[in-house]
C-alpha cells in the first residue's frame, strides 16, 4: 500500500500539521513559536448561545 492509498489518519504523522484554533487564544502563540501554521477563529457561540440548537445545526451541516 502506498502512502497515498492509506486512510487520512494513517498519513497524519507524515504530514505537516496546519491548525485551525477554536477557543483558547493562548494556543496560537505556542504553535507559531514552533513554526506551525495556525489560523485563530474569532469564535462566538452559535445559534444565539443555545447549545442544543447549535448541536442540531452542526448535525445538519449549517
Amino acid at each position: 500500500m502506498t502512502d497515498q492509498d492509506r486512510p487520512q489518519y494513517q498519513q497524519l504523522l507524515a504530514r505537516k500539521v496546519e491548525v485551525v484554533n477554536v477557543g483558547l487564544e493562548g494556543f496560537v502563540k505556542d504553535l507559531r513559536d514552533c513554526d506551525i501554521g495556525v489560523v485563530h477563529v474569532d469564535w462566538k457561540p452559535s445559534a444565539g448561545g443555545d447549545p442544543q440548537m447549535a448541536a442540531l445545526l452542526a448535525k445538519l451541516g449549517v
Binding site: L12, R15, V17, E18, V19, V20, N21, V22, G23, L24, F27, G37, V39, V41, D42, W43, K44, P45, S46, P51, A54, A55, L57, A58
Partner: peptide, 28 residues
C-alpha cells in the same frame, strides 16, 4: 475568520482543528 468553514476555505492546507470552546458547544 469567524468560522472553521471560512478558515478552511481560505487555507485549504489546514488539516487539524484544535477545539477548546466551552463543553456545551464543543461537539458542534
Amino acid at each position: 475568520p469567524h468560522s472553521i468553514a471560512a478558515a478552511v476555505t481560505a487555507r485549504p492546507e489546514i488539516n487539524l482543528a484544535l477545539i477548546s470552546v466551552p463543553g456545551e458547544f464543543a461537539a458542534a
